[in-house]
Design a protein around this nucleic acid. Structure first.
Length: 346
DNA sequence: AACGAACCCAACCGCCCAACG
DNA sequence: TCGTTGGGCGGTTGGGTTCGT
């Protein structure tokens, strides 16, 4: 099963690299460059597998590697790109100069993923985790706990006919409330949650976290209904999307070091809200400027003033939380109607 | 101070795929 | 067209470090 190892296992060293081995590898590559990784270790006098040498070089010894903590801007970029590309760590790394796919993958798994989970966001789908949702903490409990009228009307306002199960709706909406409350960790049936999520995603005008991550090329595109349908749930399907603009975006993302215009899609309740961030995001405006923001100035990557550079984990969490989860509600739905009796929790 | 738990991350493993003969 | 190969990728592991009791 699977192909044979790239080299003889016997006699080859494994485990942590010593400084001497590092030096041998660096010296050899400086002298001869890298190319044939299979023969490289032998020529360099290393008792290592070629693969091991390649990994060591690309993940650690390369001169342009940036070390140290990820900046908030880098983290934000990772999250955004992950929302589009999924676990394509190398593709993400290609847009974070000085960072390796391995480093980003590790950072995702050890930091970002956990934070998203804490925030009630599914790190895989970037959608709110339905097993943690608790609508009643957001909506006036008088209306929702005691009034079928409110349940029916909310369904109607959301354009669902017949109305979805109020319990499902309760489960499916307003994720942030449960994050702040953090009082309802009881696991729900996963399949049920998926089903509910699907229902909610299909609501006209309702989008979850995937939407803010979508880079819409123009406002008209962004404000069309059923945006979720326009955007493949599987990031890998982007390139085959019938939507040519999405396809173009995917194409641009697949090309290394090609900047793409960034538009933030906030919500679409009335007459806006596409914020063209490309004008403030010089790093993505041109090839040249992109390449220029290397290790010396990570903050140049995202200079938009709406993004707060948060230093602590909690600050990052709050900042991300406020920015990422933006819902798109139909014009008909006046949220205030549901909020009079209870102060919102965010 | 000692110990176990939790965390972090470098390195490895196995699969995939493009290139090539 | 098919088989082989090398390089690349994402997932996983395990050892070192930090944290909590």
């Amino acid at each position: 099963m699977g192909r044979a190892p790239c080299c003889e296992k016997s006699g080859l060293k494994k485990g942590p690299w010593t400084p001497e081995e590092d030096q041998k590898l660096v010296d050899y590559i400086h002298k001869h460059g890298y190319g044939n990784w299979r023969t490289l270790p032998k020529n360099a006098g290393l008792q290592r597998c070629g693969k091991s040498c390649r990994l060591r070089w690309t993940n650690y010894l390369r001169p342009d590697i940036k070390r140290g903590r990820f900046s908030f801007e880098e983290e934000e970029t990772i999250i955004q790109l992950h929302g589009i590309l999924g676990n394509k760590w190398s593709a993400i790394a290609a847009r974070l100069p000085g960072r390796t796919d391995n480093e980003i993958k590790n950072y995702w798994n050890t930091h970002i993923r956990k934070r998203l989970l804490r925030m009630g966001i599914d790190p895989v789908t970037h959608a709110p985790r339905l097993d943690l949702l608790d609508l009643s903490s957001f909506v006036n409990p008088c209306l929702f706990n005691n009034s079928s009228w409110a349940q029916v009307n909310l369904s109607r306002l959301l354009g669902i006919d017949p109305p979805i199960d109020p319990e499902q709706l309760r489960l499916a909406m307003f994720p942030l409330s449960s994050q702040h409350q953090n009082s309802n960790p009881a696991p729900q049936n996963f399949q049920e949650s998926q089903l509910i999520n699907q229902q909610i995603q299909e609501l006209p005008g309702f989008t979850t976290m995937a939407s803010p991550l979508v880079q819409f090329p123009n406002e008209a595109q962004a404000c069309q209904p059923n945006l979720v349908d326009e955007f493949p749930s599987n990031p890998t399907d982007l390139s085959s999307s019938s939507n040519s603009q999405m396809s173009d975006l995917a194409s641009s993302l697949k090309e290394d070091y090609v900047p793409f215009p960034r538009y933030e899609y906030n919500y679409c309740s009335s007459d806006q809200s596409l914020i063209d961030r490309s004008s403030t995001n010089s790093a993505f405006n041109s090839h040249d400027s992109y390449q220029s923001f290397g290790s010396s100035s990570p903050t140049a990557m995202n200079s938009n003033s709406t993004y707060i550079t948060a230093s602590t984990e909690d600050e990052r969490e709050i900042s991300y939380c406020s920015d990422v989860l933006k819902f798109e509600l139909p014009d008909l739905l006046d949220v205030n109607e549901f909020m009079y009796c209870q102060e919102p929790r965010w």
